[in-house]
């Protein structure tokens, strides 16, 4: 069978589908001071997965606000700097008007994912941390 670390090199999704892969990638990103990229990506997935039952409504609002505050509000944050202004104002609008939708972070997540695929993921595959692991 293919060892997991070889699978990680196939695509970002293969890497993010494996606990050890995530752990190693996070260690690398933290070293590069951009660990928030990965946390934000997972936060968006988790938010989308929240079930749409009534008791969850309050939780969703709170969570949407928490994601917005932590990753998007501060324009100097690593995540915020990688998201297009139009996407940020869309999310801000949703939060302010309490238009909470499971897909409200999808565009931002895609932008961060593209950035990881083009930038941090290829760097990770060439990094000492990955090469030493293999």
């Amino acid at each position: 069978p293919t060892p997991p670390y070889l699978k990680w090199a196939e695509s970002l999704h293969s890497l993010l589908d494996d606990q050890d892969g995530i752990h190693l990638f996070r260690t690398f990103l933290k070293q590069e001071e951009c660990g928030d990229l990965l946390d934000f990506w997972f936060a968006c997935s988790g938010f989308r997965k929240l079930e749409a039952n009534e008791g969850n409504e309050e939780k969703k609002v709170k969570l949407a606000k928490a994601i917005y505050k932590k990753y998007i509000l501060d324009n100097n944050g690593i995540v915020s700097r990688q998201i297009k202004p139009a996407t940020k104002s869309f999310i801000k609008d949703c939060v302010m008007k309490l238009h909470i939708d499971p897909a409200m972070f999808d565009q931002a997540q895609t932008e961060i994912q593209t950035m990881m695929e083009d930038n941090t993921y290829p760097l990770f595959l060439k990094s000492d941390i990955y090469l030493e692991y293999t």
Binding site: P4, I22, D39, G46, K62, A66
Partner: peptide, 20 residues
């Protein structure tokens, strides 16, 4: 009710794969 940080952390963890 959880604090915002707890909620965020749980949300992040919930999106991760459970096991290989």
């Amino acid at each position: 009710m959880d604090s915002e940080d707890d909620l965020l952390q749980k949300c992040i963890t919930s999106a991760m794969p459970k096991q290989r």
